[in-house]
Write a protein that binds this DNA or RNA. Structure first.
Lengths: 194, 194
DNA sequence: CGTCTATTTGAATGTACTCAAAAGCGGTGG
DNA sequence: CCACCGCTTTTGAGTACATTCAAATAGACG
């Protein structure tokens, strides 16, 4: 149950057995069926979620009702709306399960207790935030300087697992193109390679 | 000299006179002439900079040599490459003065001392990071869901001062369009308004 | 098996781009 | 102070890439 999250955390900070014991005792479980919402636009996001199994997508719905995927969260990723969690303001995005999923839940209040008892967790969550910022920055640059085809090839290289696993129209929404365009891009790529 | 930065900080945390005294004593000054670099691609960014006067731009140079503006920093803003400062890896971006500028410099090492002596500064810098993340997120969404004209109108509304002060080609690069396109967009807008 | 959704394909359209040239503006030196 | 130079902005014409709309095909799931 906790192997994955402990391995995830150990990439940044080292915990003693007691700390592990305490930390895992604060976590709750949550199961989502495909198409169930984890966060709905307008909710205040009061927890962070670790994905033990399954797959979710975070998306923004624009003024024309078009959905734009911001992030996918598969096993070993964190899910939720970090912006809303940080600011405790209503979320502009929604998070929904693309597959039946098992999550571990860390409530905001509990998180404060964890910070108090195990200060290095502050560092861990600062690291998560920093990574999120750096990858947001990189995505802005990619959108400014790369063609749709380049963005797709980079996506495939960076997240091969997601490329295999996710519906193509969801990837298109993440890349910022229509499903039709991504379909044509894929055809062009496969024609180039014979 | 320090009014602006103290006012900036006071938006997030309250400092005692002693803390103010200590904090300001750790700051250095830096003056840049127009067209001088603050950070060059490949540098590790070892300081954060507060803009007391002037204006800078941060930009990324893509594989075709095209520059893409990431951020402008005018008075009362922080400058530098947060990603490189955070990770202490070589910067992918450059920061250059668009006008003669006066900066206050907070070195990374000094920052650690400040955190140790005045822990609430940790909160202050976490807030800066959070804001940077949230606005990066918003920019991704804007690029995905808005037309160039909408992005320009929103830019103008959000940063009227920058719209007045910055060369149009720099704004175009920030919005992710060519200078020619922004020129046409502006004409279209002014024709609509009679 | 049938239904619903995802993907592919085609044709027409549109938005922003490139390239080229003219006009405008600001700073510098004679 | 004015003339010139360099850089920015505007304008025009043609082009490229992705979009929209529509329809056909393929796949997934009950």
């Amino acid at each position: 149950m906790y192997e994955l999250i402990l391995k995830n955390i150990s990439r940044f900070v080292t915990l003693t057995p007691e700390e592990i014991q305490y930390f895992t005792s604060t976590l709750k479980e949550k199961k989502l069926k495909k198409r169930q919402f984890l966060v709905q636009e307008g909710d205040v996001c009061r927890s962070t979620y670790f994905v033990n199994k399954g797959c979710l997508r975070s998306y923004y719905t624009d003024k024309d009702g078009v959905e734009h995927n911001i992030q996918f969260s598969i096993e070993d990723w964190w899910a939720g709306d970090m912006a809303s969690f940080i600011t405790q303001k209503p979320s502009k995005i929604s998070v929904i399960a693309l597959e039946d999923s098992d999550l571990l839940v860390l409530d905001r209040q509990v998180q404060e207790d964890v910070f108090a008892k195990i200060p290095k967790f502050e560092r861990f969550f600062r690291n998560l935030l920093q990574n999120a910022f750096v990858s947001a920055q990189e995505r802005i640059l990619a959108n400014l300087s790369e063609t749709a085809e380049e963005r797709y090839l980079n996506f495939r290289k960076k997240y091969p697992e997601m490329d295999r696993r996710l519906p193509q129209n969801q990837i298109a929404s993440f890349l910022g193109v229509t499903p039709e365009s991504l379909s044509r891009i894929r055809r062009a790529i496969s024609e180039k390679r014979g």
